[in-house]
Design a protein around this nucleic acid. Structure first.
Lengths: 268, 268
DNA sequence: GCAATCCTGTGATGGCCGTCACATCGTCCC
DNA sequence: GGGACGATGTGACGGCCATCACAGGATTGC
């Protein structure tokens, strides 16, 4: 992880990506991607960009960010760790963050990957409790810090924002049921497929004939931490899929060649 | 599951329990029991009885329940299934419910066990989306149904309830991070230990010298569905622990003999 | 009391998957 | 360019754990 690329590095315009920079807002709210519904009619999963601040009237959001304190992170720096006191949240302006839980023995499980436009640490902004997960920068990043105090000031003048927030939180909670189901019922392959599909949804670029290029450098270790499995098995699974033409690799970037087949792998 | 005891049957006064009936409100919000914090200072887990309605001013709750429609369930009947449309929630008046996700192949994962005083299906009351989990009666049960409409009527007149609800939902979301961590990092033994400790917390009775009796008949299959493992392994693990005097069985009820040791097993 | 049904205990088996150990390769930096 | 370091590929091994099978128990229903 040298040169500030921290594991998830952004693909610059090179004929592969769409060439825009800065990129459009994007993120994986890892828990928000049920790729297989237990029944036809599931609630629509939550887009990670529909966040607490996006429900504020624009002028209120503006006043919040007027007083926001900028915060810079170098790649691999940690923003906070589970258990830390928390009194506000951050908006990702630039860069990429990784939300994860870690075990004392060093294991890491990635819960979400957040790009520009996303909020992180919102819970502490709402209830001032200690952080429940850890956040580290996957590459050099710029954030805006919004304190709980300033948010509360704004919310007090517009108490109906809480109602919208309730709707958002409920959707997130619904999604977590899907996560538990996936962890309980899916095989390794299924979980890796879910991880790939999530990446494609958040950072994917349609490059014709249904192929989706993931415009992020993702290591097998990252995928392993997302799926909660060993890195070696990610390697084996990906190679199986490359042989079977489900995925391919272009200049270090993964490309889904057959999304439907992957979705079948990810189905429970 | 004959005779209405549906897998979790209640221990009546027999020298073991405390003999009160109906029992005091109790429940496992399975996702709300982090038995091992990744850091010293974690947020206090949410009691399953601090629910959406407990934040209402008492007189409002009273008006809500004045119009509530009673609903009866026989043991093993299902109240609703994931994907069903939902337009309200239920309060458990009597009996015991099991919240779970099921896989198409028949696997079941228990998310929560709810006794009298608990709410179930609150999400649909808040946002009218399809159910995200399934609920079945573990024994004959009586519920009160509160429609979304009537809740909204009440909430509209007291918009600040949404603020309290936000705090509750955030606590639940925090807890789910712990659940993911537990599923990622804990061994079978650890997960069974967590299940037992949760049962003890919700349905436990201190019977002296630190021993905790679980006043519920729990089958090994139930424990297996809670921990997400095979029933046979629950049997083996429990027998190990019985030999090691960590748990015992009294007239069909489990009893934690050494809570501290179990907590060590459940630690990550 | 007897049959049916559930729950429990236990062995055998096999496979998935984590761990270890390398070799290879690419990339970056000096 | 050469070394360092990280990422990747692959084999071997072993253990955990699911599955199958079946044999008692325990409970219940009749």
């Amino acid at each position: 992880m040298r040169n500030g690329s921290g594991g998830f590095s952004f693909v610059l315009a090179m004929g592969l990506g769409d060439g825009v920079y800065p990129p459009p807002p994007c993120a994986i709210l890892w828990s928000a991607r049920p790729h297989a519904a237990t029944k036809e009619a599931m609630a629509k999963p939550l887009s990670p960009l529909e966040n607490l601040l996006s429900v504020l009237p624009p002028e209120l959001a503006a006043t919040l960010f007027a007083t926001a304190r900028p915060h810079r992170l170098k790649a691999d720096q940690t923003l906070f760790t589970a258990g830390d006191p928390g009194d506000g949240c951050y908006r990702v302006e630039q860069g990429l963050l990784k939300v994860s839980v870690v075990s004392p023995s060093g294991g890491e499980r990635i819960l979400a990957i957040l790009g520009p436009g996303s909020l992180v640490g919102e819970f502490a902004m709402l209830d001032a409790q200690p952080r429940s997960a850890s956040v580290t920068a996957a590459r050099d990043s710029e954030l805006s810090f919004i304190s709980r105090k300033s948010f509360e000031g704004v919310a007090e003048s517009h108490p109906d924002v809480y109602r919208h927030i309730v709707a958002l939180l409920v959707r997130r909670l619904r999604d977590t049921n899907q996560v538990v189901a996936a962890m309980s019922f899916l095989s390794l392959k299924g979980r890796v497929a879910q991880a790939l599909l999530s990446l494609a949804e958040a950072f994917g670029n349609d490059v014709g004939s249904g192929r989706i290029l993931v415009k992020q450098k993702v290591t097998q270790s990252d995928l392993a931490a997302m799926a909660g499995i060993a890195r070696e098995n990610v390697s084996r699974i990906l190679n199986d899929w490359m042989r079977a033409k489900l995925v391919s690799r272009l200049a270090g970037y993964y490309c889904l060649e057959n999304r439907a087949a992957l979705e079948k792998e990810a189905a429970m």
